[in-house]
């Protein structure tokens, strides 16, 4: 058991959480020493974790500016959505064509769990379910490059949720779509699944842009 890897993983999870939930603001310089003290781990582990996070595009490491939390400016947003939109749409299409019975049972279970917990309106739980649903859908596409690529976007997207300072009803609106998606996948209706996902991502984009005051 490599202690370094264990510590790095721990540091990675803790720092990622801080970035996603905006405890570390976009564009803010990262103070390594302060971070070590905060997460209670060694400088080696924290440095390595920051490298992993730069792979996720959540942290920028540049020779001139040192280490900063990645920006979330309009340009970045545009780039992210330009990729997410076609990819997630394609993913939904592939899932409708290829999902196994077990894949569908998993997605169904997540939708049922959503119905069960939505009344409580806990945004963290809802966001976790949203993430799991999109991951399950990516699994159902049965293409590992798709899975890997989307997983990297999920971290960035989650941060956007928090940036848009989520109100419970937005989250609920978004998650309500999942049930329809599962129906389309069950019916093997690739067109409909793709269309629903396309709209799902566009809605999310609009929401974020509005919240950040980017829409004219």
């Amino acid at each position: 058991m490599e202690l370094e890897r264990i510590d790095t993983q721990k540091a990675y999870n803790l720092i990622k959480e801080k970035i996603i939930t905006l405890q570390l603001k976009p564009g803010a310089p990262v103070d390594e020493d302060a971070l070590c003290a905060e997460v209670g781990l060694t400088p080696t582990a924290v440095r390595e974790a920051l490298k992993w996070l730069s792979h996720d595009h959540l942290v920028d490491i540049t020779p001139r500016h040192g280490i900063r939390v990645a920006e979330a400016n309009p340009a970045e947003l545009r780039e992210l959505f330009e990729m997410r939109l076609p990819l997630e749409t394609l993913c939904a299409r592939m899932a409708a064509e290829r999902a196994t019975a077990d894949d569908i049972v998993v997605m169904d279970a997540l939708v049922r769990e959503y119905e069960r917990v939505k009344g409580a309106g806990n945004v963290d739980i809802l966001l976790d379910l949203d993430h799991r649903f999109h991951s399950a859908l990516a699994d159902a596409a049965h293409n590992r490059y798709m899975r890997e690529t989307l997983e990297r976007f999920f971290g960035l997207s989650e941060r956007l949720w928090y940036l848009a300072s989520p109100q419970t009803e937005w989250v609920l609106n978004a998650l309500d779509r999942h049930a329809e998606l599962v129906q389309a996948i069950k019916a093997r209706d690739a067109e409909r699944a793709a269309g629903l996902m396309h709209q799902h991502v566009l809605d999310f984009q609009a929401l974020v842009e509005k919240a950040l005051g980017l829409t004219t």
Binding site: D102, V106, A109, L110, E113, S135, A136, D139
Partner: peptide, 10 residues
Amino acid sequence: LRAFEAISRI
């Protein structure tokens, strides 16, 4: 194995 796959996704 199928139970494992499914549970680990939720």
